[in-house]
Design a protein around this nucleic acid. Structure first.
Lengths: 340, 340
DNA sequence: CGTCCAAGGTATAGCGCTAAACCTAGCATG
DNA sequence: CATGCTAGGTTTAGCGCTATACCTTGGACG
């Protein structure tokens, strides 16, 4: 079916290696005339090199893995966040004639398996828990270029890219304290865990302490990052903690659900309760009032991850140091002074 | 570095082929005792088969491509839509020990190149224009299993999965006509093209004709699928066509922008103008008033695409026939009777 | 005039795996 | 007792490519 190097070589009357050299742009060893003749035949016959054969013979696959957690039977956790990275990464890789392989990871061993099985040149790990990254040993990784996004591991085998989650929480909480709030609740998923949400939780607690406000564990709730969970939480909060005048949440969608839940319980935002979201998602400006939130530099994060990956693939070794991007408070309509 | 079949064979004192048979679960030719011994060694040594070697030797890569249009230098066009498919596809493929390769396509030739270079067993084409699919010849495709989503090509080489776009437009437009509207505008991207949007445009025109309403080309506008474009369109519409009392749009995000644009021009929804969106996106319920829209069966579409792909990979040949999924009108708050 | 060298190639030996054909002992069968 | 068959393997011949070492010319140079 397919045209191979051998076919081209036969037609051009040269050895197979000469064709290989031409196709791979190794200028040195071929005369211009021969090169042109071969290229013409390659075009004519529609020759496409076999990536598997190359990968096998050259011990390099020109393949980068995109590894995403996949919880059991459920789908991949690709949020708008992630999509941006995927898009940028694919484009940059394509420019350099690399390819992207998407792989959900449900057991730890699958990371190593993915790296080795396809002989990946690099891999981007999206949103894994620190512990997962920590457990990666040099033997697991081999020489694969690893970039971990949104992980707080300190594994020197992976270059890390994240935004300043602690700082974002500090910004949000200080904003609320500055407006005069004292009973400030926190809502986010699994914050007792390590990782991104934990950092935001610590930022929140730090600012409370900084202002002499006692941390009340009853005001920190584990809430999933969905509209429905936010809504339920809003009702609950209104019923159980009417003294709360502000909430810092770790996701916009949760915040929007929360606002609806509060409204359902007769509490208005920002009149009765102030709310700050996180991520500055697209939806943040479509709701009324528009959501006050923390913006991450998403394109920046994606660009940085891509840059690190490209540099490592190109062989530029850089210190395994974490890159942390700045965040910003976007003041819109959901945070105001507490009711007097 | 890596452990190979040869290493395992040497350690187990059997031939390489026996190990290969065990690893690939070919029960027939190996005794239970030998099989267990080999499996133990495989586990101990952490053997991972080389996918490139397999692909080369077996002429099958267990690799499925996800081909997405990539316009020039820009990123991939992965909308929430697409993400659902990606997630489901990855999960199903992983269960069957296939892998997913993500590839942006910016020139037509790249489709063939992608199929051939990695020796793909199958490919899902997401959101390509019909013309692109039409141009695919048997030689381009080889034996690759092709599933095209949201294409209206009739190329027998690709199984097609789409939802009933014409029917959706009919539902939306009839709803508006039924409410008493006569000056109904249409807004969507590139509807003069072929494809999904064209189908919706035809649905709209058909219903107008059906009710004896003359089609006015000035009321059909080419508007990009973004909030900003919708907003600009809203202002323009209010200024240039104050007689319009209803708009059917091909995307929710466009509809939401449109509503804001109308509001900015002093026209309220649904009091002055009714609006129907398309897709029943998540945001549709977060805006006020909640958006009346057409819902596609997204999970169904994804599931169907996956099912077709799986069947074809498993060798079940089915007639190359298009699957079309039903749509539904979701009545919410943005469509009402025209002002009297 | 012998030597060196560069330019422009070719020949050889795999990479790690699988498909397909082949082998061999041991047993049942007519 | 020859024959066939089966279980349980082994051997051989690549898949399409690249790395590496090697081979020829025809000058330039001392």
């Amino acid at each position: 079916m397919g045209v191979t190097l051998k076919d081209i070589a036969a037609e051009a009357g040269v050895s197979l290696m000469t064709v290989s050299n031409v196709v791979n742009g190794k200028q040195a060893r071929v005369s211009a005339a021969t090169r042109e003749r071969i290229m013409r035949i390659v075009k004519e016959r529609g020759y496409v090199p076999s990536a598997s054969a190359r990968s096998l013979a050259a011990r390099s696959s020109r393949l980068v893995g995109l590894l995403v957690p996949a919880v059991g039977e459920s789908s991949l956790t690709i949020d708008p966040h992630t999509v941006e990275v995927v898009g940028m990464l694919e484009r940059e890789l394509r420019r350099l004639d690399y390819h992207l392989m998407l792989r959900g990871i449900s057991r730890h061993g699958e990371i190593t398996e993915a790296l080795r099985s396809w002989n990946l040149d690099g891999a981007v790990l999206l949103g894994f828990n620190d512990i997962v990254i920590d457990r990666l040993s040099a033997a697991d990784v081999g020489g694969v270029a690893l970039v971990a996004m949104d992980s707080y591991s300190e594994n020197p085998l992976a270059l890390e890219v994240r935004s300043d989650d602690f700082g974002g929480a500090v910004l949000a909480t200080r904003h609320l304290v500055g407006l005069g709030h004292e009973r400030i609740a926190f809502a986010g998923p699994a914050f007792s865990d390590t990782g991104v949400v934990r950092q935001r939780f610590e930022g929140y607690r730090t600012v409370l302490a900084e202002h002499g406000i006692a941390f009340d564990p009853a005001l920190a709730s584990e809430v999933e990052t969905t509209h429905a969970a936010g809504l339920a939480y809003g009702r609950r909060l209104a019923a159980e903690h009417p003294e709360v005048t502000a909430v810092f949440t770790t996701a916009d969608i949760l915040a929007i659900g929360l606002i609806e839940g509060l409204a359902a319980a007769g509490r208005s935002v920002p009149g009765d309760v102030s709310v700050v979201g996180y991520d500055n998602a697209e939806i943040a400006v479509y709701v009324t009032p528009k959501l006050t939130t923390i913006a991450q530099d998403l394109p920046g994060k994606a660009a940085e991850a891509v840059r690190l990956m490209m540099d490592r693939l190109a062989g530029k070794d850089r210190p395994a140091q974490a890159v942390s991007l700045d965040v910003a408070l976007i003041e819109r309509g959901t945070a105001g002074p507490p009711p007097s």
